[in-house]
């Protein structure tokens, strides 16, 4: 029966690769990435050279912007592939032609999940490999092999994030009456984790900590490290602790934290080793994998048990 799964996988991949929707999201990533890095690179050039070298700054900016842009786009890739997976086939009625043939119901869902995995990795890779070299040449920086490896390695957490959203959307799709309904619910989840939860968590943090200490600020002189800024740092340490705790189960936050670890620079200006940065963030990986399993398994079970009425 594996050949039936592969037939479905192949058709899903071809159908999506030929679709405008799929490439529109890749295009959106490239556009967002180029415009944001351009703006930031422009600002950095004006700042002169302080602390870390400009080269590192620009490289860090380029990579943190990959992460930042991906945290919005990767979920969209997952949702785009997932919301219609079952619901749209029901809407259109194609599912009745497919399931009237000698295939098991799990072949359909297996074929779709495998295709989605491939399409996600492909979209994330394509987005990164189109956008980053473009941005590098626009910024005119020298990128070391180490920098580039890290940049490409960003695609792994990004794929995990996209896959987490895919399985969420798939779960919604299996249970929804219509695909439009599935889209609305999936997008609501995205909006919740990307925009609402961060606002809620910082609101709660401010409620607990009270207003931040006054910042020693003098517009005519550069920023001086001293008494005031220690208080300030302490406050923000606590603040981010609270915010992180509230967002512990947010796939977006786990993704961002994983990425930050990947690009953490030592004092010397070189990166932590891959294993040590991942070792410190195993929880992030676990949470992302948990999302994938927590939605994939019930989607699977519910789909197998459903009947095609209507």
């Amino acid at each position: 029966m594996i050949e039936k799964v592969l037939i479905i996988t192949k058709k899903e991949i071809l159908e999506n690769i030929k679709s405008v929707k799929y490439w529109a999201i890749v295009g959106l990533f490239v556009l967002l990435y180029l415009s944001s890095t351009y703006a930031i690179g422009f600002a950095l050039r004006g700042l002169g050279q302080q602390g870390i070298q400009r080269r590192e700054r620009v490289v860090l900016t380029l990579s943190s912007q990959v992460a930042n842009t991906m945290s919005y786009i990767a979920p969209l890739i997952g949702i785009a592939l997932g919301f219609g997976a079952v619901a749209a086939e029901r809407d259109k009625g194609t599912i009745r032609l497919v399931l009237a043939r000698p295939i098991y119901r799990d072949a359909l869902i297996n074929g779709k999940v495998i295709a989605a995995f491939i399409l996600i990795v492909l979209a994330v890779l394509a987005s990164t490999l189109i956008a980053v070299p473009l941005a590098i040449s626009v910024q005119g920086v020298n990128v070391t092999l180490d920098d580039f490896t890290r940049l490409v390695f960003v695609t792994v957490p990004a794929s995990l994030l996209a896959l987490a959203y895919y399985t969420m959307a798939l779960f919604v799709s299996v249970n929804a009456g219509r695909s439009s309904q599935a889209l609305v619910v999936s997008l609501s989840m995205w909006i919740f984790f990307s925009f609402i939860l961060p606002i809620i968590s910082s609101f709660i943090a401010f409620q607990i900590l009270g207003p931040p200490p006054a910042m020693p600020f003098n517009a005519t002189r550069p920023f001086q490290p001293g008494q005031g800024s220690r208080q300030f740092a302490e406050y923000y340490g606590k603040y981010s602790q609270i915010v992180n705790t509230i967002q512990i189960m947010s796939p977006n936050a786990r993704y961002t934290s994983l990425i930050n670890a990947l690009f953490a620079l030592r004092q010397s200006g070189s990166y932590e080793t891959l294993t040590s940065s991942l070792g410190a963030r195993w929880l992030d990986v676990v949470v992302l994998l948990f999302y994938i399993a927590a939605f994939a398994i019930p989607s699977y079970v519910l789909f197998l048990r459903r009947q095609e009425t209507r």
Partner: peptide, 28 residues
């Protein structure tokens, strides 16, 4: 068994041939 259901649909972005090819492969 060959079924013509009451409510059905095809993959609209695919041609008649591609639709039948996909369904035919699933038929084995």
């Amino acid at each position: 068994v060959g079924l013509l259901p009451e409510n059905y649909g095809f993959y609209e972005s695919m041609t008649a041939y591609e639709n039948l090819e996909y369904l035919g492969k699933l038929d084995g």
